[in-house]
Design a protein around this nucleic acid. Structure first.
Lengths: 110, 110
DNA sequence: TTTGTTTATTGCAATATTACGATTAATATT
DNA sequence: AATATTAATCGTAATATTGCAATAAACAAA
């Protein structure tokens, strides 16, 4: 196997896990933090910033883009990547709904 | 490979990705939602609730426990699992710090 | 047009994850 | 004690992920 049985779960559960999965690698966390920090579009410094090889960074960018969390335009020889703010907010809504489940209850037998 | 180069990243980045990774599977999302919903300790219904085999659920529970998000006590022949509220809040702080990065800026060339 | 610069893609090796059957461990029940 | 019940562990097959060297693609500059 090694194969997630998505059909057992709700769309919401699958969506949450897909978002979470993309954050489940420190390189992607780091890329996103960098895009927020420089707060403009990145044109290639990511490979120097993070210590991974160029194809590896490219692959991580692809996954982030595929999920819609970043936008990217190739501009001549360099590329312009930045956070897709609209989708970032959408993602936050989904994740927060999951994180903010009600904790104010008893039932603590453990 | 198939091996994350954690040493390239900060402790914070690694911590975020470890939390996210555990949410990166719908079965674990589902387990956590169920624990919140029934709001008491679970004693075995998870296998029926979710459609995965008992060893598989047990393995997912182990990961959740290992990260501290749930607590579990064996009680005779059944087991009592519930959310570790203290650690859940800690986790939320870490993740929210990452999700709530400042979006109110221009620099949108894409 | 040739040469550099930058990013994407391909192909592959190493490792990790998912899932489950079979079994074990631990305790209840009879 | 023998039997049932429940959850953990072991072993293993299938698949996914990570990382990078090599290469390709796309364009800029000379």
């Amino acid at each position: 196997m090694g194969l997630v049985k998505s059909e057992l779960f709700t769309d919401q559960q699958n969506k949450i896990s897909l978002y979470a999965k993309v954050f489940g690698h420190p390189a992607r966390v780091s890329i996103l933090q960098y895009l927020f920090k420089i707060n403009s579009c990145v044109c290639g410094d990511l490979v120097n910033e993070i210590g991974l090889a160029q194809p590896t960074i490219s692959q991580h960018l692809k996954e982030l883009k595929h999920l819609g969390l970043i936008k990217g335009n190739v501009e001549g020889t360099s590329v312009c990547y930045c956070i897709d703010k609209k989708n970032w907010i959408k993602m936050k809504t989904v994740i927060n709904q999951f994180l903010n489940q009600d904790l104010t209850q008893k039932g603590d037998c453990c």
